[in-house]
Amino acid sequence: MILNGNNITKQYTRRGEKFSAVNNADFFAWSGDFTVIFGESGSGKSTLLNALAGVTKPTSGNVEIDGQPLFSLNDEDLARLRNERIGYIPQNAASLSAFTVAENITLSSSLYNKKIDKEHIKALLDKLGIAHLANEHPQNLSGGELRRVAIARALANKPDLIIADEPTSNLDEENSRKVYSLFARLARTGVAIIIATHDKTAFGYSNRTYHMKSGTLIPDIGEYGNL
């Protein structure tokens, strides 16, 4: 799997003024890469990840997976690609309150009437330490538990690209380590991992790093990189 982002610019309008949340960003990731994007809040990391995940169309530039430009796909094909190949964990992911934790996690499969791999789901819940919450409703869960539900949901369909925005926010040290270990194991199996975070622990697992500052993406910052 090759993810390629070229000249990604995303502009928003704030109080009548246009500003670039992401400005001409070039991004690249291979299968098995563990990429960390470091940056301050408001630097444009989330906007960039949204564009890489195919949920926010950039104002200009393009994002390709295996040479396929994401935003030239129609709604249906893009949705299916997101469902089958991308596991995205946004910063403030919500869960469907009327569904149980197990139902929320298997939602990506059931949306397309796909057979649910129960063994895989069970293993995921065990690894993330939320197996005992399978039949609970999201409103009964803590912030950290909800975060782990969002991670499990993103991994449920066995994607070959995982994009995670602050995946360990709300998690304690032990659970953060569990999550990074899980991502690292997945990277070793060929899954591309892209993480945006403040958490410097993540650099210990990465093989590629970027620094995001005021909408500009700077590759291989070195200071924290494990290159």
Partner: peptide, 16 residues
Amino acid sequence: KREFATLLIIGATRKK
């Protein structure tokens, strides 16, 4: 809105 955004992320079409 956040529920709808989440559905979109996991592969729901905008039409859905």
